[in-house]
């Protein structure tokens, strides 16, 4: 079979994946005060990995990113549940969150929130679930 000539697609993808990953992290970070959050950040991350799957093939990417995405989804749900239970340890309701200023060494006075930990779990769960679905759809013939 003749090899397809897709050098433009490959070159664009190398640049675009970096932009999409940066944008997904920006969406994830801005989720406390602005539109964004763990769910949509995880979906943008999944879009970047899907673009890599499309252009370079599943086998190449699986060889380089050898992470079991089902385990990623399970770890994400575990983190979310544990941060929910963490509020109960202090006698507060389930999924209680708190935030406050913390004096960090280099960044100075920074506002930190415990909801970010919950969002990390949500993002990992979304990434794992979406990539598992995409890979099991793409695997069958």
């Amino acid at each position: 079979m003749k090899r397809p000539n897709d050098v433009i697609l490959r070159t664009v993808t190398k640049v675009a994946v970096v932009i999409i990953l940066t944008f997904s992290i920006h969406l994830f970070i801005s989720g406390h005060h602005y539109p964004g959050g763990g769910f949509i950040g995880g979906l943008a991350f999944t879009a970047a990995i899907t673009l890599l799957f499309l252009v370079y093939g599943i086998d190449t990417i699986r060889k380089n990113i050898s992470v079991d995405f089902k385990a990623v989804a399970a770890i994400g749900v575990l983190i979310s549940v544990l941060t929910g239970v963490g509020g109960m340890m202090a006698g507060k309701p389930f999924l209680n969150q708190t935030s406050g200023p913390v004096d960090l060494p280099l960044l100075g006075d920074t506002m930190l929130a415990t909801a970010v930990l919950f969002d990390v779990g949500v993002a990992l769960a979304v990434i794992g679930t979406a990539l598992t679905i995409i890979m099991s759809i793409g695997d069958d013939h």
């Binding site: 944008f23 879009a47 899907t50 673009l51 499309l54 252009v55 093939g57 599943i58 190449t60 793409g138």
Partner: peptide, 28 residues
Amino acid sequence: LLIGILSFVGTIALARFLERGAVFERNQ
């Protein structure tokens, strides 16, 4: 920006499906 990214990925996937009959390549 998000609609642009999703439209780009979706168009590439559909174009690949039309051209080769499969979305993901095997054994590249």
